[in-house]
Design a protein around this nucleic acid. Structure first.
Length: 306
DNA sequence: ACCTACCTGTTT
DNA sequence: AAACAGGTAGGT
């Protein structure tokens, strides 16, 4: 379900409600979904909440005798995970796996419940000690955030240029290149860039790389403005759907006319995922005349990647 | 760079 | 009955 815009929308709906509250009670209804690193899950105060790629991270603290203790709760929703807020104690449903009661001991507000729901059970919650031991490898390996200054063209170009054998689609799905794109937004970004998903990442010239970078920022920003894409399961913390499904240009539109040129949208399996594109707006190769003029060697500014 | 596995539900 | 679905980890 959730790619960067959906996870960001979940964050924005939940963060203002949970900040400063204490996790007073945790009911784990399904073994295996909550990877508890032998830390007690209860008694923590939620000091901060953020998103990194498709991960949600809660910074936790608590007053131990002298020194304050810290921990992190890391959540990945994978395909069908949902975090839902409730003003009263929820009745567990078929796919409810964790229920947390969040109290507000100081200002005496009523408790709030945060429920983890996941039909396919691919998602994971995991409580990490302050030193970060046990951090999911996927979180540690994430590339830059596309909507932050770290999404630097030189570094991006450098990573693309090195992937001479991989399709653009595969590279955009690679979370170590860029954090947060999934199957929907990879296709939408490629359409917005006018780039064919099957092209090799290393074949792009500098201006195509710049176009790809700009389209990524544009598409993700618009999708967040729409609170994400709801195809079936996705909702934010208040159980509200997104609206970006109404703005999709290629994803899920195989066989229907391109909204720009009316050519039927194509679909095929690429990098293990169904991939949709417009054969006219996203041509296989550039006309040769254009290709010659801009090809430049991308140079690495940093050695941040291998 | 591919494949399969992990799950359940929906669509063909 | 079989294929497919927003993701990733692990194996070849």
């Amino acid at each position: 379900m959730p790619e960067l815009p959906e996870v960001e929308s979940v964050l924005r709906s939940i963060r203002p409600i949970v900040l400063g509250r204490t996790i007073a009670r945790v009911d784990v209804l399904t073994a295996g979904v909550f990877l508890n690193d032998h830390l007690p899950a209860e008694g923590w105060r939620i000091a901060a909440m953020s998103r990194r790629g498709k991960y949600l991270v809660m910074e936790l603290d608590r007053d131990e005798t002298d020194e304050p203790a810290r921990a992190r709760l890391v959540i990945h929703l994978r395909m069908t995970g949902q975090l839902l807020l409730d003003r009263k104690e929820p009745v567990p449903q078929k796919h409810t796996h964790v229920i947390m009661r969040l109290d507000s001991p100081e200002d005496g507000e009523l408790p709030i419940w945060l429920e983890y729901h996941d039909t396919r059970r691919f998602g994971r919650l995991c409580l990490l000690p302050a030193d970060g031991r046990g951090e999911p490898a996927g979180l540690a390996a994430l590339g830059p955030e596309p909507l932050e200054p770290g999404f630097d063209l030189d570094l991006f170009a450098c990573k693309l240029a090195r992937r001479t054998k991989s399709s653009l689609k595969a590279v955009l799905l690679d979370q170590t290149v860029l954090a947060g794109l999934g199957n929907i937004y990879a296709d939408e970004v490629l359409f917005a860039s006018g780039l064919n998903p099957a092209r090799t990442a290393g074949s792009l010239n500098r201006s195509e790389m710049a176009r790809l970078r700009e389209a990524t920022v544009r598409v993700l920003t618009r999708a967040i403005d729409c609170q994400g894409t709801t195809l079936r399961d996705y909702v934010n913390g208040w159980n509200q759907q997104g609206t970006f499904q109404n703005c999709l240009m290629v994803y899920g539109r195989a066989g229907r006319p391109c909204q720009i040129c009316s050519t039927p949208i194509q679909a095929r399996r690429l990098a293990g995922r169904t991939t949709c594109w417009c054969p006219l707006c996203q041509p296989d190769e550039l006309p040769q005349a254009i290709q010659v003029q801009t090809t430049k060697t991308a140079r690495c500014r940093q050695n941040g990647s291998t």
